[in-house]
């Protein structure tokens, strides 16, 4: 399988876009544009940190990248690089070049400081029961403190946690993240999707409800009792 030149993932307060340090710049910026356009609704409004590794990126190339993101309703917020050319260019464009909180391990190479603050990832908290006809969309995770009734729908790029009965439709990892999980205290969704996989609850009455988690394993969705 061909290695991806563009990697996009959600981080605290935005997106981290990692660009291959070796591949042709024009090619990877084009690929980035195509990737964003394919999911424009999800990415719109996002604050982007770009990691270019040790590639030297001159100012004009960086401002082209900035414009490319802005045209799609996103803002270039920070640039991460080991190249001084890139860092100078970023500073000239008034971009941040350090995001210590965002990416543990990348900064603090001397290991002298340990940041005790857990970064976490963003999400939406819904503190009520979602009744039939309600929908929740999120580019992060979705947490419902209440039930998800039949006819309600949750679509999240990340995980879905339901502290209650899950009976509606749920799609976790909607951007294709197969590591996304769905958990509920009573897992009887009408339909459950993780990334590109789909399953339905087995028919018939359930025994005692119990907390369960759903994950993708060997290309299928596995639902199992929550181990604690």
């Amino acid at each position: 399988m061909q290695e991806q030149h563009v990697n996009i993932k959600g981080i605290k307060d935005g997106l981290l876009v990692s660009l291959s340090p070796t591949e042709e710049w024009l090619l990877i910026t084009n690929e980035l544009g195509t990737r964003i356009d394919g999911q424009s609704a999800f990415f719109s409004g996002a604050r982007v940190t770009v990691d270019v590794g040790n590639r030297p990126v001159p100012k004009h190339e960086l401002s082209t990248l900035k414009a490319l993101l802005e045209r799609r309703g996103m803002t270039l917020w920070a640039v991460l690089s080991d190249s001084s050319t890139t860092l100078d260019a970023a500073q000239a464009l008034d971009l941040r070049t350090s995001t210590a909180n965002l990416i543990p391990g990348r900064e603090d190479t001397d290991g002298s400081e340990f940041n005790p603050e857990e970064g976490g990832t963003p999400g939406v908290m819904v503190r009520r029961t979602l009744r039939s006809g309600r929908t929740v969309h999120s580019t992060g995770h979705v947490i419902v403190y209440g039930d998800v009734n039949p006819g309600a729908e949750i679509i999240a790029a990340g995980d879905v946690i339901v502290w209650g009965k899950l009976r509606g439709n749920v799609h976790a990892g909607a951007n294709g993240d197969e590591s996304a999980v769905v958990c509920a205290l009573d897992m009887t969704p009408n339909q459950l999707r993780i990334a590109g996989h789909i399953t339905v609850s087995p028919p018939g009455k359930r025994r005692q409800p119990r907390p369960e988690t759903a994950t993708v394993r060997d290309n299928q969705i596995i639902v199992e009792a929550w181990q604690y």
Partner: peptide, 12 residues
Amino acid sequence: VRDADRIIGLLE
């Protein structure tokens, strides 16, 4: 019951 649930949501 499904429709009633929708109605309750709209009332809320």
